[in-house]
């Protein structure tokens, strides 16, 4: 035990130190690099500052993020609402089950060309693609989560003569929320991928479009800075989601920990 206690700080130091070392190594190894594909990290950071923090912040970064947030919000609300209706009304579930199974097999990005053919290259097309692609993971998780709710819990709700509204808000929603949240997390990833894909097709604005354009016009540092920005956004979105999840599901995470400890 004592030995383990002494090792802990060293291990944590390793955890924090290694990425920093890797970044430093990238910086040093690429300094003065003349390789076309791998420009110096200093150049990339320079271009990053110039492009994303000033020139294109309003015209591209905000546009991309707005599409992402809007599409994701529509998908999340619709998926949970439709999921509830589907799970609670058996005839509806029977009717949409085959359709849903087919639709979720479609790679989400393959929906983008269809929306382009229907709506053109405007921002509506992007939001619609993101919303539809992000709909399915949450929808399926909601239906599964509701169907797995403990029968006993429902019986108790019945005995207490809870109204339909109370049953949904106070019993079903909390009971299914762990599953709903894992669906929401997959939806967020899907939304992010489709956001980029919808920008990489056709003449358009946004971070994905800028990054691909930089690649095609051989502005390699610009392309790298776009990749860096997309990477940071992908990480940050997931990180924020996790914060919210931990807050909302604190009761569940705590009970799981207790169950494991006992």
């Amino acid at each position: 035990m004592d030995k383990l206690m002494n090792k802990r700080p060293v291990l944590w130091l390793l955890g924090i130190g290694t990425p920093a070392l890797l970044l430093a190594a990238w910086w040093l190894a690429s300094a003065g690099s003349t390789d076309t594909f791998f420009p110096p990290l200093a150049d990339i950071v320079d271009r990053f500052r110039a492009l994303w923090l000033f020139d294109h912040f309003g015209s591209d970064v905000l546009v991309s993020l707005r599409n992402l947030v809007l599409g994701y919000a529509i998908a999340a609300l619709a998926a949970v609402a439709v999921g509830f209706v589907t799970a609670l009304a058996a005839p509806v579930r029977w009717a949409v089950d085959p359709l849903i199974h087919f639709l979720r097999g479609i790679p989400p990005v393959a929906l983008v060309p269809i929306f382009i053919s229907l709506m053109g290259f405007g921002p509506e097309m992007r939001v619609a693609s993101i919303a539809l692609a992000a709909f399915f993971p949450t929808f399926i998780a909601t239906v599964d989560g509701l169907r797995a709710v403990d029968r006993g819990l429902l019986d108790v709700a019945q005995v207490y003569r809870l109204s339909r509204r109370d049953r949904v808000v106070a019993v079903l929603l909390p009971a299914a929320s762990p599953q709903i949240f894992s669906g929401l997390q997959v939806s967020l990833q899907t939304a992010f991928v489709v956001m980029i894909a919808s920008e990489m097709l056709g003449p358009s604005r946004g971070i994905g479009a800028m990054t691909l354009l930089a690649q095609q016009s051989f502005m390699i540092s610009d392309m790298w800075s776009g990749i860096l920005l997309l990477g940071v956004i992908g990480f940050a979105a997931n990180f924020l989601f996790d914060l919210v999840r931990r807050k909302v599901l604190a009761w569940y995470i705590g009970s799981r920990r207790l169950a494991r400890a006992s």
């Binding site: 990833q189 992010f192 980029i196 990477g231 990480f235």
Partner: peptide
Amino acid sequence: LKPIPPIVILPL
């Protein structure tokens, strides 16, 4: 790196 989808490095 985990939450970053491969489409991000597609241009590279």
